[in-house]
Design a protein around this nucleic acid. Structure first.
Lengths: 203, 203
DNA sequence: ACCTCCGTTGACCGATCCGGTCAATGGCAT
DNA sequence: ATGCCATTGACCGGATCGGTCAACGGAGGT
């Protein structure tokens, strides 16, 4: 890719990336027109091709960038060095919200790219995935000792359940197009209080 | 549309519908090629155009069919005449699973079509939506009296949470492409037991 | 005033693919 | 042998694809 892309004003870079995330997340790779990305970014197609020499290069850059961005925000918000489950979940959600604010379609793109079957890109995606995410999983070190929760609780099930709630909720919000950050944050605070009240052992 | 479509063997009809749901759920309307749908259905493009005279007609038919199908299965499984929340949720999930088995991409299609912005179809979609779903909401009559749950429970929050779990979980399963029905059903039985154990008042 | 530089673009390329059509094929019942 | 009809490959004109390029225009130096 053309290094001049990086000397663009940050907001213009972001506009281009977001446009890419949006179009690629809403269409299969081969049905995602570069012209549509350019238009969504507010630049000409020629200029888009000036920064990214071809479609595949843009796509794979977006993929790499999404992995980096996610890990960067998770780290910055301290998600990886918490041991308390609720703290980690809360920080993770806040981090994810910040990501969604800046790159609203990145999450959908990541999932879709992961399952993309087009032979032009799928191999590279899979390789890159294993490169990035194996490390990431190792970093998480949560304390899941039973005595902090109500007796007899199925802890893995609770964990999964909380994860699914977050996914399902955020997904619903994302579908709506432009999301109301304040409302999401309020919903999640309520949800967190709700969880603590339900799951945590009363002293 | 051509009435001959209905005299096809049921499985062939379903194959065509599923192909449509799949392609339209994975691409925006205007980036969804009819040729791709035909290929996914295992028929020629010409035959697809023989049954549906044009792309828009197929798209709107799929939309109508998805609404009808959902309501039909929900009704058949008795979701609308239950008053107990957990019963309704369990039946709803089983119904949804059956739907997902037969029309694996329909749910995604429904959501995507609802937010479709293409002027060629979006107006008709919105009109049809209001026609169908206003009625549907009226049918649900759940008993949410507090004394059946643990004291002090935030009932609307519990309801939302259960809904989000179902959405998030089913979404994750759908993303994987071909879904393992047995695993899903087992997961959901565990989840249901988990919920009852957590939320229901102990006698 | 002139020149250079360069971010940016409209116009353009050939190839492909689009939605949609149609004559022809081939299997089946008569 | 004939008629019927589901099904198709080949085809249509036009749109769109990924990608290129000459040229425009504003900023900065002289």
């Amino acid at each position: 890719m053309n290094q001049k892309f990086f000397s663009l004003p940050a907001e213009k870079q972001q506009a281009i990336l977001n446009a890419g995330y949006r179009v690629f997340s809403q269409n299969a790779y081969k049905n995602s027109p570069m012209s549509e990305i350019a238009m969504a970014a507010g630049i000409s197609k020629a200029l888009l091709f000036h920064y990214f020499h071809n479609k595949k290069e843009l796509y794979l850059y977006l993929w790499e960038k999404s992995a980096e961005t996610t890990i960067e925000y998770m780290t910055r918000f301290g998600c990886y060095d918490r041991t308390d489950l609720f703290d980690a979940m809360e920080l993770g959600t806040i981090a994810k919200l910040e990501i969604m604010r800046l790159y609203p379609d990145m999450s959908n793109f990541t999932v879709k790219a992961f399952y993309e079957k087009d032979p032009e890109v799928c191999l590279e995606i899979q390789e890159s995935y294993h490169r990035h995410f194996n490390l990431k999983v190792d970093r998480v070190r949560l304390s899941l000792e039973p005595d902090q929760f109500i007796p007899g609780l199925d802890i893995p099930m609770m964990y999964k359940e909380m994860y699914w709630v977050a996914e399902g909720y955020l997904w619903e919000m994302l579908q709506a197009g432009d999301l109301d950050i304040d409302r999401v944050e309020k919903d999640f605070r309520k949800l967190m209080a709700f969880w603590k009240n339900i799951y945590k052992r009363k002293e």
